[in-house]
Write a protein that binds this DNA or RNA. Structure first.
Lengths: 199, 199
DNA sequence: TGCGTTTCTTAACCCAGGTCATCGTTTCTG
DNA sequence: CAGAAACGATGACCTGGGTTAAGAAACGCA
C-alpha cells in the first residue's frame, strides 16, 4: 500500500518535520505511519470522544482546535485546549483502555488524523523508532499535568490569567471567555472583573 | 556477590512481596536488585535531596516518612508525603538529570534504601522484567500528578481537608497542621478554622 | 433579515480564606 | 531543668471570588 491518498493534503510537510525533529525517521517509517492515519472532520461543538467511551485513537490536529472537559456538579470544567499541529488523546483512557472521564469537543470546524491505538502498538513492534514517539508522548502528558497542577496551586486566579495572556495570547483571542473562565477555575463574571481590573 | 548483608533486616519480605505482585520476578532478579540497594538513615528534618541538586537515585522507604516541598515567595509548599513501603524520587530530576526544583525532607527518623539510577538503567538492560517496574513507576507518577491537580481545581479547601481525613486518616495524625496546611494550599490559621467548623 | 439565545459586562451583597495580632501549650535544645 | 522557639487556637478586619440579577451586544438559525 504505497502512498495512499489518505494522508495527503498538507499535513505531510509539517508532521514529517515535527517527527524528524523528535527522532531519526526514514521515509518508509513515515510512510508506514501515514498509511494508518484516518481523517476525520468535526463540526463546531462536535465530540471526538464522549465521557464513558474508551479512547481508541490518538488525534493529530491538522486544523482547528479541541478542548477536553468534564462535569462537576452540573458545571463544565475545561482541562486543556489543543490546536493545529498538536497531538491529543485522553491518555488515561488510551493507555489503560478504560472509560474516559472527560469528553473531547471541537472548538471550531476541525480536521484531525486519527492514529488507532492498535496500529500504534503494531508500529512499536515493527519499527522501534516509534517507541521513542510513545515515550515522548507519555513524558509530555506527565509534564503537562505537572505544569497545570503547579499553576492551579501556586497562582491566584488573576495571576493565572496574566500568565495565560503572556504565554498563550493567541488562545485568549481564540476561545470564548466562558471557556477561558472554566479553564482558569473561575466563574465568567469573575474573569470579567479580573479583566476589568487589569486595564 | 551472593546475598550481601546490605539489604538485610526486614525489607526483604515486604519489598519482595510488593515486587512479585507487580511483575514476574525470580529469586535471582530480586537478588540483583538487593545487591545495588544502598541504606541511608535520615534524622528528622534532614534532606535527602536539596533544591538545585540532581536526583541520582530512587528511594524505597523502610520506615519513617518523607515530604517534598518547594518555596514560593519565601513560603514552603508541600507537594506530597510518602511513608514506609513506598518508593519516591523527584521524577522530573531523576528522568532528565536536571536540577531539582524541590527538596525532599525526612518527616521523622527515617531509613531508606537508595536505588541508584545507573544501576536501575543497567537492570533495564540486563533483566527486562525491570522495564515493567520502570514503566509502572512512570505511570504512578502521572496518575499521582493528575489526581492532585484534579483535587486542587475541583474541591474547596474544606472539601480537600475532608477528603484527606477520609482517604488518609493516618496522615492527618502523623504530620503537623502546619505541614497539612501547606499541602492543602492553605495558611495554618485557615486550616485551624476549618477544623473548628467541622466539629 | 429578524427573532431568540448566548455571551459579556456591571453592580450589590455574601462569605471563606488571608492577614495581623494575641495567648496558652507543646516541643526543642542547651 | 529552664528558657526559647515552634505550634495551634482564636478574634478582628480585609480582600477577592461566588451568587444573583439585569441589561447590552454578539451570534445563530430559520
Amino acid at each position: 500500500m504505497a502512498t495512499p491518498p489518505l494522508a495527503s493534503g498538507g499535513i505531510d510537510e509539517v508532521l514529517h518535520a515535527q517527527l524528524r525533529a523528535m527522532m531519526p525517521l526514514t521515509e518508509t517509517d513515515f510512510a508506514a505511519l501515514r498509511a494508518v492515519l484516518l481523517p476525520r472532520d468535526l463540526r463546531k461543538h462536535e465530540l471526538l470522544l464522549r465521557e464513558g467511551e474508551i479512547c481508541h485513537a490518538a488525534a493529530y490536529i491538522e486544523r482547528g482546535g479541541l478542548r477536553y472537559y468534564y462535569t462537576v456538579e452540573g458545571e463544565e470544567r475545561t482541562g486543556q485546549f489543543f490546536f493545529e499541529h498538536e497531538w491529543y488523546a485522553d491518555y488515561d483512557s488510551f493507555l489503560d483502555q478504560k472509560p474516559a472521564r472527560q469528553s473531547i469537543e471541537a472548538l471550531e470546524p476541525t480536521r484531525v488524523w486519527l492514529l488507532p491505538r492498535a496500529d500504534l502498538y503494531r508500529l512499536y513492534d515493527e519499527r522501534p523508532v516509534f517507541e521513542r514517539f510513545g515515550r515522548l508522548m507519555a513524558e509530555q502528558a506527565y509534564r503537562g499535568s505537572r505544569a497545570r497542577g503547579a499553576g492551579l496551586l501556586n497562582l491566584t486566579p488573576a495571576e493565572r490569567y496574566a500568565q495565560l495572556l503572556r504565554d498563550r495570547p493567541q488562545l485568549v483571542q481564540r476561545v470564548s471567555q466562558r471557556l477561558l473562565a472554566s479553564y482558569l477555575g473561575l466563574k465568567p463574571e469573575s474573569l470579567s472583573r479580573i479583566r476589568g481590573r487589569a486595564s
